[in-house]
Every structure is written in C-alpha cells, then in structure tokens.
Write a protein that binds this DNA or RNA. Sequence first.
DNA 1: CCCGCGACTTAACTTTGGTCAAGTTTCCCG
DNA 2: CGGGAAACTTGACCAAAGTTAAGTCGCGGG
Lengths: 251, 251
Amino acid sequence: MMIHGQGYPGNPDGDPVAAWLATLDRSVSPFAAEGGRTIKAHDKGDWLFRAGDPASHLFVVMDGAVVLRKVNISGADLAVEFVTRGGALGYRAYVGDGIHALSAQCSTSCVVCRIPVETMAQAGDRLLEGRFIDHMAAELTATRTRMLQVATLKVRDRLLILLARISRDFTTMNDHQTLVLSPPLSRIDMAALAGMTPESLSRCIRGIEEEGLAHFTRRHVVIPSVSAFRAELSRIGIEEGVCAVELALAG
Amino acid sequence: MMIHGQGYPGNPDGDPVAAWLATLDRSVSPFAAEGGRTIKAHDKGDWLFRAGDPASHLFVVMDGAVVLRKVNISGADLAVEFVTRGGALGYRAYVGDGIHALSAQCSTSCVVCRIPVETMAQAGDRLLEGRFIDHMAAELTATRTRMLQVATLKVRDRLLILLARISRDFTTMNDHQTLVLSPPLSRIDMAALAGMTPESLSRCIRGIEEEGLAHFTRRHVVIPSVSAFRAELSRIGIEEGVCAVELALAG
DNA sequence: CCCGCGACTTAACTTTGGTCAAGTTTCCCG
DNA sequence: CGGGAAACTTGACCAAAGTTAAGTCGCGGG
C-alpha cells in the first residue's frame, strides 16, 4: 500500500495516513511511548535536524508541515521538498551512512513523532518498516516525476502543479467550485520547490491572476473555478494527485 | 552500506557491487537458481519491462547498461535514468501498487539477474532486502541532487556531470591524464538524461570541444586532461562521485 | 551495394526566465 | 509605537536554451 501522496479523505482504498497514525497514536504521551517513540510539538522555524548531523531517529509528521533544505553552491538553504501530515523523514538513520544529507525545518508549528532507529531494526516491527519503505519508494517515484516536469514544463505549469499538491493538505475552504488554499510556505520556498526564482514566481502569479485561474494574497490562494483549474492541469498532463481539487469536484 | 554510485574499483571501503554479485553469482545457471532467481542475457534494445506491466520480479544488472524511460505528454519515450552493473531495477514489484511506472530498455547487450518478489518477501532474506532498500535510498538521494542541479545549473555543466557519471562504468582507457569514455547512450538519451534537447546537446559538445575539455566522436569521448576536467567539476560544486576521474588522478 | 530512414548537426530565430536594481510591504523586535 | 531588516513585487535587460528548418551522416535492410 502507498503511504504518501495518495492519502486523503474520501480515498476509496482507505486512508493510509490514518493507518500510519493508528499505530503511532497508541503512544501519545512521551512517557508511555512504546519502543522509545516520543511525540513532540515544535514551533514554526524549529529545525528537526541539520545536514551533517548524525541520524539516529526516524520522524513522522503528525501535524503541520516540514520543509527539507539543501545548501546550494551559493550557500543559500534552498527548499527541495516539503512533507506534511502522515509523511516521514530521516531515511538516513535507517540506510546509507547515517548522516543527514538534508536539513529539516518546520514551516508551521508541528507535531512530530520520533522513532529511534533501533525500533525499526528489530525484526519484530516489520509492519512499521514496510510502511517506511513504501513511503520511500513513493517519494522516489514522485521525485523522478517532478524531475521530468522541471525538465519539460514551463514555470507557470510547474506552479500550477505545486498548487495542486498544496491543495491536498492545506485547503481551508471547499465551497463547491471554489477552493481556498493556505500554503504554509514563503514565496522563496514556493519558488524553490517549483524550481524557479522568486522573481519568476511573482511574474507567474501575476499571469495566473490575469488569466483568472487563481487569486493570490500573501497567505491565501483562492481558486474560483476548480473545473477550470483542473482542466489546465489535465492539459499539462496531470491527471492524478490533485486530491483536494478532485474532492471539490465530487462535492 | 551504500550499494549504488559508490562502487568502483579501488574504493577504500570495499566494492559493494562485488558484494551484491557475490550473493547472486552463487546461482549462475538458471537451472541451479536459488530461490527462483534466473540469470539471462539480453540484446541491445530489448525491453525488460514496460510501464503498466505488472511487476513481479526485481532485476539486478550484472553486466551492461539499462535505460529507464517514461513517456511524456508528446508521447516520446524519454530516458529518465540509466542503471549499470550492480544497479537494481523494479522496485514496484516490492512496493507500491505492483505496476511498473517506467519502462526499462537495454542500451547495450546485458546480463540481468531476475529475482521473484516472493524471495524478497521471505523474512529469511533480510540481507538481500536490506541491500535493495539501501539501493533505493541512494537512488532517492541521487535523484534529489540531480533535480537541484537541473534547476540551478546550465546545460553545459549538466553535461559535464553526466560525463563524469558515465566515466564510472564506461571508461575504456585510462592513460595517466587521458581518459576515453564509451557511453552506451544515443545523443537523444544523453540529452534527456542531462535535461535538455538534442540540439542543445550538440551545441554544448561543440562548446566543450572549443574549450579543449573533451573531444567527441559518435561513440567515444576523449578527455585529454583529467585534472582540467576535474577542476571544472569542482568549480561547479561536484566533489564526489566522479570515480573514474579520481582513479585517473590517483594512477 | 545502394537506398532510405533515422540519428545527428548546424544555423537563424524566438521565447523563456534568470539577473540586477529599485521600490514597497510586512513583520519582528526593541 | 517606530525603525529596520527581510520578504516580496516590479520593470528593464539580456543570456540561455528551446524551436524550426534544412541540411549531413551512417547504419541496416532489401
């Protein structure tokens, strides 16, 4: 079963995110934590780990959003990925050299479950392990897909795809045809995630506003016609993975 | 231990590719195959699987090179990845929905080991499973890195990085400072892997020739000065993963 | 052996989007 | 509440790379 990217309310295959959490919620109190798991709240801006740190825990995001960052040659800490409720972080504790390759920063206030790697290493916890592997595989597929998109699509189209992705987890209103998103990302991070500069992002935003596809304020994005939005996505070649958008259509 | 991308002769940490193969070579004959493994030779151009096929086997490339392809909106079957000796394919048999997301085509004549997924599922074969997971994680890291590169580097620099990558497995001569590569890839595939059009690739090739960094014929690439080539790579920000180049420097 | 198609190259043109610079808004912190 | 820094927007400019089109090369099949 896929863990990531398919989990949204109304999924006919059941909600895999809930499955993740069902296991983890058993130990809500850090004191009653099973297998050394702890659950902790973080403030926006907190770092879960930094690139170069030794990796000793796996993380599961139980609420909020975490941005993964990597420093480029110029020294800027660019966003390369964002992980939301139900997503997992910190593969490096489990595989590879045990040193984090990326940094992880909370982009909202977060609740994060921390699993010592020894727990995973126990042969007894095959279920948890399997989930983690599924998650990693889904991430690999998604990253490859996104790479193709960066290589072949224009910035405008990449921004639309990013918005669709954001809609999965950050739709605050869903009124028939209208959708209101509240992305937990700065313009700089959104630009990095869509593979462009902040200046280009600003230009795209203006363009999309002029088309009437969406209306942007600093903190919200209003999509007045989900069907029009969705038509654009399918023109680009995106048919799946735009969950909230699909929900709005169904409703 | 990392399986992929670090395995080259002279690696001080030992040769992980050999470790892979050591397990697999035990059953060279398909008739004596342990756990249902079979080893098969393929011709250049053969397809190991196509996107949409049900995935029932994992594949390990024992010799040659395999190109992973994905159809884009225009219907072209673009190269998104290439896998060489010691690399693994077919995660989808093990995780996810069990349907191949990509197609796999031999870009040279190949020897491929085919492992039924049930073998992996047996709790007894934790070693093989662990290797596969390591491989997947390394692939994920590499793909993310490459995505950052596509987003931030110019086509010329991406071509140099691709050449460095090719040098790992397809260096046919290594005469002190001079390196001769024999990429098993068409220009079209090289262009796709570096995230550009064939026309841009041609222009890049001419530019690199004019700089004197490398000399291209249809089937070979001659790098007259490895130290100059390496200096270019480090200017771009690539310090590791240019194995054959490092070997040439060491020799 | 030759033909023809597909791979590859080259050149001219055009568009995209990155860069630079300047201005505006927001938000944090004293 | 005010000042300053960072985030964001805007516009002008221009380099990079995609597109189109027209060629050349080379391999494989007849």
